[in-house]
């Protein structure tokens, strides 16, 4: 299983009336406080937690809303990798920060190709995948199940608000595609 999260930095915590300390109090565990010194790092940890949650939820069926039940236990800024724990389950992930978005992808430690690198494809590079994306937009949930069960690609989608994110694992690499797509939510 894999989980993916994308944070649109144009409408994230930074636009809120609340400050860094307010969010840290509600989101971070004590051991995570030292990882966070500004809103960008907070948003990055949030993306890590969200991706770990989605992977965990897909794996176990467990759903909850409590950011502090997700622990980011290791964070390596040089390799952009992190570890997360939810209960007794461990997850491993990777993240990427661009001027517009933060991307995070997480997978369980039992995944066979969990050493893969994270690649980001922008919306403009999707033309070659037109057929795939047409199917994706027609029925994203069905498409995800098709990739996962019929073709053996662990994958996940994020389709809240006005954008989709789509990730999948293939030959040891993790791909996240993101596209802003009004009207297909």
């Amino acid at each position: 299983m894999i989980g993916v999260d994308i944070i649109d930095l144009s409408c994230s915590f930074s636009g809120s009336k609340y400050g860094l300390e307010d969010y840290k109090r509600k989101i971070l565990n004590p051991s995570e406080m030292d990882l966070c010194n500004d809103l960008l790092s907070l948003e990055c940890i949030w993306a890590m937690k969200e991706s770990a949650y989605k992977c965990h939820s897909a794996e176990t069926g467990d759903t909850f809303f409590n950011p502090k039940r997700i622990w980011v236990t290791q964070l390596d800024l040089n390799t952009s990798r992190f570890h997360a724990e939810i209960g007794c389950r461990s997850y491993k992930g990777s993240f990427c920060i661009t001027p517009e978005y933060i991307y995070a992808i997480c997978f369980n430690l039992h995944s066979e190709d969990n050493q893969g690198r994270l690649f980001i494809k922008s919306g403009s590079s999707l033309a070659s995948d037109q057929e795939e994306w047409t199917e994706f937009f027609t029925s994203p949930d069905h498409f995800t199940k098709y990739l996962l069960h019929d073709r053996g690609f662990p994958c996940a989608i994020e389709h809240k608000g006005h954008y989709y994110a789509y990730s999948r694992s293939h030959h040891g690499a993790y791909y996240i595609s993101a596209i802003i797509h009004q009207g297909h939510t």
Binding site: S12, K26, F65, K160, G161
Partner: peptide, 12 residues
């Protein structure tokens, strides 16, 4: 369909 980040705002 509330964004999970906004749930934190609702709590605050």
């Amino acid at each position: 369909k509330i964004n999970s980040a906004h749930l934190i705002d609702i709590v605050l």
